[in-house]
Amino acid sequence: MKNLIIVGARGFGREVYDLATQCSGFNLEYVIKGFLDDKADALDGFENYPPIISSVEDYKIQENDVFVCALGTVKWKKHYAELIQAKGGKFINLIHPSTKLNTNAVVGTGLLVFMYANISNDCIIEDFVTIQGYVGLGHDTKIHKWAHLSSYSFTGGFVILEEEVTLNTRATVLPHVVVRKGATVGACSMVIKNVKENTTVFGVPAKKLDF
């Protein structure tokens, strides 16, 4: 039996805790040992959660430990997952049993996939991608490492999301569009053409925002 440790005990970490309890491996392949978080009081005022064991930096990995990274911001997800990997830690997938994985869909390691996500035919999902509830991925979508897809976002067929892309709630990316590395698509936006690296787009149709 493995001991699952959730990296991050803030709001998203609490959601990932519930995801972990709802997956088929709970109490069969793993038990939940607790959280790692630099903020030792992050769970103060919240009941019915396992404890914060340590900060990420101070934690010494044990033989049966496995990890998931419950950080909603791509930058920090990557930072802390790489810290755990550098210590020799191993990550697992949490994929909700209501998720639909269609024919030839391929998934990597360290994924978080929430309820009623639909991963269509021949999709490729690389490591450490987060797919929140009710996301729809059209056939032949390719999602590169570290991407984060918020609830109800959608990609058409043959979409490519490069590394570290964020789709916010109800964002839609039309077929054959490429969203380049580090780009962010705002909530309720519709992307009809390729998005440049490290840019933020918003609106219908989505246009670049300058900050």
Rank of each mutant, 00 (worst) to 15 (best):
E47H: 13
A70K: 05
T200I: 13
Y134G: 07
Q22F: 02
S120A: 07
K208V: 15
A86D: 02
S98Q: 08
V129G: 02
F154H: 02
E162C: 00
C69E: 01
A105F: 08
W76I: 00
F202Y: 06
G72K: 10
H176G: 01
V191A: 04
H96T: 10
G8W: 01
A42P: 05
V16K: 01
T130V: 12
Y80G: 02
K33M: 11
T141S: 13
I119V: 14
I92Y: 05
E15W: 00
I53A: 10
F91G: 07
T109N: 15
E162V: 00
N194Q: 00
A187D: 08
R10M: 06
F26S: 00
V113L: 13
H144W: 10
A187F: 04
L112R: 04
K207R: 15
E29P: 06
G186V: 12
G89S: 09
A9R: 03
E126W: 01
S151K: 03
V106A: 06
I160R: 03
L101F: 13
Y80S: 04
N104W: 05
F114N: 04
Y17F: 15
Y80F: 15
K208L: 12
I192M: 15
G11W: 08
G89L: 13
D122I: 04
A81G: 02
I84G: 01
L28D: 13
G156N: 11
I192F: 00
G11C: 15
Q132R: 09
F46V: 12
N93K: 12
K90N: 08
Q62R: 07
Q85K: 15
I61L: 03
G88T: 06
T73M: 11
N93F: 14
T99D: 12
V179Y: 00
T141Y: 00
V178S: 09
E29L: 05
K39D: 12
T172Y: 06
Y134L: 11
Q132F: 01
F46I: 15
C23Y: 02
E82N: 13
S153I: 04
V16S: 05
T103M: 12
T103S: 14
P97R: 07
D37N: 08
N93Y: 11
G25N: 11
L111T: 04
V177G: 05
I32F: 05
F35H: 05
A171Q: 08
P50F: 03
F46G: 09
K60R: 15
K2W: 00
A183V: 06
T155A: 11
L28R: 07
T166Q: 10
V178H: 14
P205K: 09
H139N: 05
K142P: 01
I92A: 08
Y134S: 12
G25F: 00
R180E: 13
A147C: 12
T155H: 08
T141H: 09
G25S: 07
D210V: 14
H144Q: 00
H148W: 04
G138P: 06
D58W: 02
I95Y: 05
H139G: 12
Q85M: 10
N102H: 08
I95Q: 02
H139C: 03
N48T: 14
D58P: 03
L161I: 05
K75W: 07
Y17E: 06
N198R: 15
